[in-house]
């Protein structure tokens, strides 16, 4: 478990697979080895009218924590994170009368996963309800748990293979949590932030 930084990689006039290909070549040239695939998915449920005040539940799965179901409950004023056992999915099914899922908002990011020394790099192509939306690069620095202590190192590493499109500042979510101990739910927060942006964007891929 370490600190994870998620950043978007722009696709200029290229398709998603081409961009992934480009980044893979770069990371492999640095000496990384591929260690399987990864998948982060997000499903959003909204409360029905009868419950009154509208609430949104985002249920996320991360293949890095296969036994865990993450959920973020947005009440409008605050966001309540929850990390639970796999049984939570079944619980959501039971609650389908109160929380209905919007199938067309199912977002996921999947792609190859590389390991290079203490870093773990994941190149994910994001799809929202099977429409390609963009590329997310996740970099995890495993030996450290405090973002402030390793942000510069990660930034340098990101610049090493993302070039100019590497982020100059930590992600918004992390900016006021730089001194705290990083936990997997923070990664989920970052993913959700990006997914929300992707959902609202008009999209680059072919739309049906």
């Amino acid at each position: 478990m370490g600190v994870t930084i998620l950043s978007q990689f722009p696709i200029d006039n290229k398709t998603g697979p081409q961009t992934i290909e480009l980044l893979s070549k770069r990371i492999l040239a640095l000496g990384a080895t591929q260690q399987g695939q990864f998948l982060v998915d997000c499903e959003t449920y909204t409360s029905v009218q009868q419950l009154g005040h509208p609430r949104t539940v985002h249920v996320l799965h991360n293949s890095e924590q296969p036994a865990t179901v993450f959920s973020l409950l947005e009440t409008g004023t605050k966001t309540i994170p929850l990390a639970t056992d796999g049984l939570f999915d079944l619980l959501m099914m039971k609650m389908s009368h109160f929380y209905t899922s919007k199938k067309q908002t199912k977002a996921e990011s999947k792609g190859p996963r590389y390991e290079i020394g203490d870093f773990c790099v994941k190149l994910g192509s994001v799809t929202v309800s099977s429409n390609f939306k963009g590329i997310l690069v996740e970099v995890e620095y495993r030996p450290c748990v405090v973002p402030a202590l390793c942000w510069d190192l990660i930034k340098e590493f990101l610049q090493g293979f993302l070039g100019l499109s590497a982020p100059a500042n930590p992600p918004n979510y992390l900016q006021n949590r730089m001194q705290e101990v990083y936990s997997p739910i923070d990664t989920i927060h970052q993913y959700l932030d990006h997914f929300t942006i992707f959902r609202k964007s008009p999209g680059v891929g072919l739309r049906p």
């Binding site: 924590q65 865990t68 993450f70």
Partner: peptide, 9 residues
């Protein structure tokens, strides 16, 4: 506890 504690692979 692996689920709630978000144990990695």
């Amino acid at each position: 506890l692996a689920g709630p504690m978000a144990a990695d692979r």
